[in-house]
Design a protein around this nucleic acid. Structure first.
Length: 299
DNA sequence: CCGTCCACCTGAGAGC
DNA sequence: TGCTCTCAGGTGGACG
């Protein structure tokens, strides 16, 4: 379940189910699941055993569990990853990639991933330059795992800088949807919530970023924040059983989608049938009336 | 440096 | 039935 609201739903579940517990054993069933851990599966497991999980933290679509060793267990769900808190007796499906056992009698942590685009790693924490400006001085210098340092803050973090985002958009020579999906500009947004935010802002996906007016960027960020917040409240978007929380349960935001996957259905604002365009080997959904095509579109 | 494209995977569903 | 094709929520690296 891969965009920000789904990852946040998982983060909240991990906070309740595994934070504070001590790892007793780790099994890597598929080495590709830990390919971002440079030193290999053995080293990955060795670094985790004996550690206690300190917290559950998220930026964009990455989440991590700081360890008492000073490093962090970092996860990305890719297209089909799940983190599940299941009891050891629960049957293991064919896509179970990593198992984390704990010293207590509570549930184990499972990383399940059909397509194996996601993965886990143990990485050192480094200073977060983006958030440093906003440090409140009460919790020490803000840290992020090494593998997360390259992405921008997400729009729900205090560290996200609206003015810097607007300036970066003006400098870009691309379409607004491409920019929304660029995790180094703004993190956490994927194909669903990009289309939903653009629908809410009344912007076509091919609008050139350099021609966006300040009011357009304001509406866009407002649309982004509203849709992400609404989706978190609904437990995320689940089209099928691939996207579930740590207890294996689906979210229900799919019932609130206004654009994504809605082609042919009437726009909730104006009644015009939602259109689907092929775009970047993927799809872009929009309302032909509320989101008119720009005169000089950019891919 | 910047923008674009595709390989990396598995599985489901449509069409023939 | 079974083949081929398209599509799916993401990302990083190669290429121009």
């Amino acid at each position: 379940m891969p965009e920000l609201p789904e990852v946040e739903t998982v983060r909240r579940g991990l906070e309740r189910s595994v934070v504070g517990r001590t790892i007793s054993a780790v099994q890597v069933a598929h080495p590709r699941a830990v390919r971002r851990h440079d030193a290999g599966p053995q080293d990955f497991a060795g670094l985790l055993v004996g550690c206690t999980l300190q917290a559950a933290v998220r930026r964009g679509k990455y989440l991590w569990l700081p360890l008492d060793s000073g490093e962090a267990l970092v996860g990305h769900l890719g297209m089909s990853g799940q983190l599940l808190a299941f009891h050891a007796e629960a049957p293991a499906g064919p896509h179970l990639r990593v198992r984390v056992h704990f010293a207590d009698s509570g549930p184990e942590l499972r990383f399940v991933d059909q397509r194996t685009f996601g993965g886990l790693a143990v990485q050192p924490l480094v200073a977060d330059r983006a958030a440093a400006r906003h440090a409140d001085g009460t919790s020490g210098p803000p840290l992020v795992p090494r593998g997360v340092a390259h992405i921008a803050p997400d729009p729900l973090e205090p560290a996200f800088d609206d003015a810097a985002f607007a300036a970066a958009m003006r400098k870009r020579r691309t379409g607004v949807k491409r920019a929304l999906l660029d995790q180094t500009l703004i993190s956490g947004i994927g194909n669903i919530y990009a289309d939903e935010a653009l629908w809410r802002a009344g912007l076509h996906w091919a609008r050139p970023t350099e021609a966006l007016r300040p009011i357009d960027v304001r509406r866009l960020l407002q649309g982004v924040r509203e849709v992400l917040t609404d989706a978190i409240e609904a437990g995320g978007t689940s089209f099928d059983a691939l996207y579930v929380n740590v207890n294996g349960e689906s979210g229900w935001f799919d019932r609130s989608l206004d654009a994504y996957g809605q082609q042919g259905r009437p726009c909730r604002r104006c009644g015009t049938p939602i259109r689907r365009d092929k775009w970047m080997n993927r799809s872009a959904y929009s309302c032909p009336t509320c989101q008119p095509r720009p005169r000089s579109p950019r891919p």
